[in-house]
Structures are given as structure tokens and as C-alpha cells.
């Protein structure tokens, strides 16, 4: 079976499950490239950090586009910084592009969202 290059674009803080989805495809012998857009980073829990590391082990890559990688990432987490033009050029070679979930909210999440 042909291995496909799949980009998963994550534009909303509540849809970082797209990283797990990319890992699922990596396990199925595809190349998973999650892209966290404009600083909508997940909480870097042990589970999330392990998933990101595993994507790298499976020859995928996790990108941050439009915001620098946060400081103090867990040791095993590597995020590749990429700008929008570079992302577009890379995705010209993509087999599948998945704008995942919802767009970024325009309003600020209330404190209740933290729980």
C-alpha cells in the first residue's frame, strides 16, 4: 500500500486531537504531519508529549505555523517552526490535506475552559 503524505491543520485549541489522528495514520504506514496554527497549542501532557515523539519516530513531523514553539517544552517534544508560505509550498506535495475540526475562536475563552 502506498504511503501517503497527510497534513492535519489544527487551527483551534480544542482540536489538538488532530495530533492523535496523525499518529493513527503513521501507525498505518502513512506520513503524518500535524500543523498547529497560530499558537493554538495543546497542553503538553505526558500523553501528548509521547504522541508527538512517536510521530517523529514514525518519520512524521509536528509543525508550528504562525507562532514560535513555546519555551519549556517537554524534552521529547520537537516542534518545527514553519511560516505560511513554506507550509503552502510543502503541502503542494501532500496527498491529503485535512483542515481539522473548527476554526480559531474570535472571542477569548473564559477561565471555565481551563478545566
Amino acid at each position: 500500500m502506498e504511503s501517503l503524505k497527510v497534513y492535519i491543520l489544527i487551527a483551534n485549541r480544542t482540536y489538538n486531537d488532530g495530533i492523535r489522528s496523525a499518529l493513527g495514520l503513521a501507525v498505518e504506514n502513512h506520513y503524518g504531519y500535524p500543523v498547529i496554527m497560530n499558537g493554538e497549542f495543546p497542553k503538553f501532557s505526558t500523553y501528548m508529549a509521547e504522541n508527538i515523539a512517536w510521530i517523529g519516530d514514525m518519520e512524521g513531523e509536528v509543525f508550528t505555523c504562525g507562532a514560535p514553539a513555546p519555551d519549556n517544552l517537554p524534552e521529547e517534544v520537537s516542534l518545527t517552526e514553519i511560516n505560511l508560505q513554506e507550509l503552502g509550498e510543502r503541502m503542494r506535495d501532500a496527498d491529503v490535506i485535512i483542515p481539522y475540526g473548527l476554526l480559531k475562536q474570535t472571542n477569548t475563552p473564559p477561565p471555565a475552559c481551563a478545566e
Binding site: 496554527m37 508560505q85 503552502g88 476554526l103
Partner: peptide
Amino acid sequence: RSEPNDDVKTLVDILNRD
């Protein structure tokens, strides 16, 4: 699915080029 924002327009321009 909704009116494209500036990021989407930029990416579409690159993807559609040539």
C-alpha cells in the same frame, strides 16, 4: 465550509499555482 480567512486564501493561492 465558511468564508475563507487570509491564511486559507494564502494557502489556496500556493496550492492552486500553475
